[in-house]
């Protein structure tokens, strides 16, 4: 089995395990590319639970989660959605970017996310009691600028929340090395670049460079790509379209990796 690499930041693994044993639902928030999805997958492996991932979008209906009737040659039959499947069979149901879903959709989670742990399916009149191994996990990125998107407080308050940020420099360095096989000196420089860029968050750029982007850059470099070019394409290019900002970011890269012509 292919094991997911995950490096603990603070106490999230213990917390998740504790929550899993108590069957409490978990809410994870954090900026993009900081390891939310990776964390869930690695926890699934660790606890030996299947992970059902649903990426939420604004057209996601309750039927997409719960299930619906379909037709075949012998008539109609009921098809479980990912949520009902996880509820029946046990496993982690992971709703990624939950604020993208409409608020009325997420209401179906309410009875699952409190002490009742049941999922009523009104179309079939069924009331599924959650499997002992069923666990509900949702995640979102709080950095978006839209006042209408957000979670209903009544939904929010049914979860234990875990806040993710970017890893500490030491951890991030280890992650980058582990993921890409790049050598330590290069990893150190990449982390230094990221640390500087993250100071611009909230004032000059909307969201700072993610660990994911650093890993991309490191992967390019370890494959023999020129470090300056790798950083320009994977880190700088995807952060902004503002020329002056790009110039400054390029300058920062040059301070670490000498410039080469493309």
């Amino acid at each position: 089995m292919n094991h997911n690499y995950y490096l603990q930041q603070s106490n999230e693994i213990e917390l998740f395990e504790a929550a899993a044993s108590m069957r409490l639902p978990i809410l994870i928030k954090g900026p993009t590319g900081c390891g939310k999805t990776r964390f869930i997958e690695s926890m699934g492996e660790r606890l030996n639970l299947k992970v059902y991932t649903v990426v939420c979008h604004d057209d996601l209906s309750a039927a997409d989660l719960v299930g619906r009737h379909l037709i075949d040659e012998s008539g109609t039959y009921w098809q479980d959605g990912p949520l009902s499947k996880a509820v029946r069979e046990g496993g982690i149901c992971y709703l990624d970017e939950i604020i993208e879903a409409r608020k009325d959709t997420t209401v179906v989670l309410h009875s699952l996310a409190d002490y009742r742990r049941v999922l009523p399916i009104d179309r079939t009149g069924e009331l599924i009691e959650a499997h002992p191994d069923f666990m509900l996990v949702v995640s979102y990125n709080p950095g978006y600028q839209n006042i209408l998107k957000g979670m209903k407080p009544s939904t929010k308050q049914r979860f234990i929340s875990l806040s993710f940020t970017y890893p500490t420099p030491e951890n991030e360095q280890e992650i980058v090395i582990n993921e890409s096989g790049v050598d330590e000196s290069v990893a150190k420089k990449l982390i230094a670049i990221a640390t500087d860029i993250r100071q611009l968050q909230d004032s000059d750029i909307q969201e700072a460079v993610s660990t994911r982007l650093l890993v991309y850059a490191a992967k390019l470099i370890s494959r023999g790509f020129d470090p300056y070019q790798a950083c320009m394409h994977s880190i700088v290019g995807s952060l902004s379209d503002d020329d002056e900002l790009l110039e400054v970011l390029e300058r920062l890269i040059v301070l670490h990796f000498p410039k080469t012509e493309s």
């Binding site: 500087d196 860029i197 100071q199 004032s203 000059d204 900002l245 110039e247 400054v248 300058r251 920062l252």
Partner: peptide
Amino acid sequence: SRALKIFYHLMGGQK
């Protein structure tokens, strides 16, 4: 001037 200002923030200067 603007590039310098961003750079100043980048280096950890007071915003």
